[in-house]
Write a protein that binds this DNA or RNA. Structure first.
Length: 439
RNA sequence: GGCCUCAUCGUCUAACGGUUAGGACAACGGGUUCUCAAUCCGUCAAUCGGGGUUCGAUCCCCCGUGAGGUCACCA
């Protein structure tokens, strides 16, 4: 019995560097990568830069960096523009064999120049292909007409270039967005004309924005590098994006890179478009930052705090309030920590706890001043402050009778961290001064 | 509009043709708390409509309806 030769799976991600790529594009990259790695295959990155006017080095670099950031290593990097000789070869072959022809036409931009464009001789037949996600799809190619293959022999267009490149690079699985479904029949026609095998197709339903429309830069979709600067963890983004329109079936949601590779299954990709939910992505990120070591957390938070707030005591209170590192800057920017920098201004009436009154409030503050003044400056830490304050607070009707005025005197805010940590960060002098001022 | 595709909580989704239709995010409520945050517990919430097939349809078929994609000398 002859041994079945296992054909190694080759997938590719083929972006055109004509702009920054958003989440949706990276999701197809992730799925292509995962599918290749899961099956021990190769993952190729091909930069489709045949559109010379719109392709920019800057975008290409952004794509490469983002892929690296996400941890999607590719086995090879091709640039489509490097392959024009081969495109030309197949173009000439097709012309010779009669499946394509040169057509002298006026340039479309109206400049009266006559160009020799290459058109495909469309046999006008039904083309059927099997899509891993969509199943069998049949389309008629009649209304496509004799579509254009190249602007001229040396300037191939998308359809021709894709088919030739996939063929020569040995791509076995074309995993791309659903917006390419309608391109598939004509690419299959070209494959047949040049004698290339038809790869297995998997067209992924699109990722939609909250407006239920295809993600697009125009409508505010961000490049992946924007998530990087917002302080998301790449592992969280990878996990979060992989779970848009796909899941492995169980109830586990946090998957590492390796776990994703292990459990990825193209056939479990959702058939309908998915609306991308940023809140869920934030949740993913929070789950990942919670797993970091305290040193790592401290380093990241401190790095985003201004000079005057460089205090390790702030780390835990900030950490509880953020989903991603960038939130630190947002909070600082919103003035959330201004009371650490200078004494707050406030309406004294707000010092009063619930149904209490001016007299009781004054007494509470005096009590606080008394017990806190017993602490030395070295002993002015969270634990000591807390036990000193709680000792007297417990003797009151409610703790809030003392704790509220103290906290408010220190922060001047309705919502803030507790008075113990605030006092300890402020230090004895500043704390005492603010409490005095409140009376 | 033509062509292609899809349809489960607000969102992401699970469920050999037999489940009280499950989980997560969000929302809401509660415990803990001086407030916020964090944390724990809980609540709300869905099979688009109509016909079939079947002992039995979220699941299979048909028709509606709705949604998305695509109709370049861009990719």
């Amino acid at each position: 019995m002859s041994e079945e030769k296992q054909v190694k799976i080759v997938t590719r991600f083929a972006p055109s560097p004509t702009g920054f790529l958003h989440l949706g594009a990276y999701r197809t990259a992730i799925f292509s990568y995962l599918h290749a790695k899961k099956n021990g295959g190769r993952f190729i990155l091909r930069i489709e830069d045949t559109d010379k006017e719109r392709s920019k080095k800057e975008f290409e670099e952004n794509i490469i960096e983002s892929l690296k950031w996400l941890g999607l290593g590719y086995d090879e990097l091709y640039r489509q523009s490097k392959n024009v000789a081969r495109h030309k070869f197949f173009l000439e072959k097709m012309i010779k064999e009669g499946s394509a022809y040169i057509s002298n036409e006026e340039a479309k931009d109206g400049t009266e120049v006559i160009k020799e464009i290459v058109r495909f001789k469309n046999p006008n037949i039904d083309v059927t292909f099997t899509d891993v996600i969509k199943g069998e799809v049949t389309m008629n190619t009649k209304d496509l007409g004799d579509f254009v293959l190249a602007k001229n022999l040396s300037e191939p267009l998308f359809h021709l270039a894709v088919v030739v490149d996939d063929f020569e690079e040995g791509v076995t699985h074309v995993i791309r967005g659903e917006d390419h479904v309608s391109n598939t029949p004509r690419q299959i026609l070209i494959q047949r004309a040049i004698g290339a095998p038809t790869p297995i197709y998997a067209h992924l339903p699109l990722v939609l924005g909250s407006d239920k429309l295809k993600l697009s830069k125009r409508r505010g979709a961000l490049p992946i590098s924007a998530y990087q600067t917002q302080g998301y963890l790449p592992e969280a983004i990878l996990n979060g994006i992989a779970f848009v329109g796909w899941n492995p079936g169980g109830e586990q949601e946090i998957f590492s890179h390796d776990e994703l590779v292990q459990s990825f299954d193209l056939s479990r990709v959702q058939k309908s478009p998915a609306i991308f939910n940023e809140e869920k992505l934030e949740w993913f990120n929070k789950e990942y930052i919670k797993k970091l070591s305290s040193e790592e957390i401290e380093k990241n938070i401190l790095a985003r705090l201004p000079e005057k707030l460089q205090n390790k005591k702030l780390v835990s209170l900030i950490f509880e309030r953020i989903n991603k590192w960038g939130d630190v800057e947002s909070m600082v920017g919103a003035g959330e920590f201004d009371f650490f920098l200078h004494a707050p201004k406030y309406d004294k009436a707000k010092l009063i706890f619930k149904n209490s009154n001016v007299e009781k409030t004054k007494k509470s503050l005096e009590l606080a001043i008394k017990v806190l003044s017993d602490l030395t400056e070295e002993n002015f830490d969270i634990e000591n402050i807390k036990s000193a304050l709680m000792l007297v607070a417990e003797q009151l009707e409610t703790r809030g009778e003392l704790l509220h005025p103290v906290r408010f005197a220190l922060t001047g805010r309705d919502k803030s961290p507790d008075p113990f940590i605030v006092a300890s960060v402020l230090g004895k002098n500043e704390t005492m001064s603010r409490l005095q001022k409140a009376i």
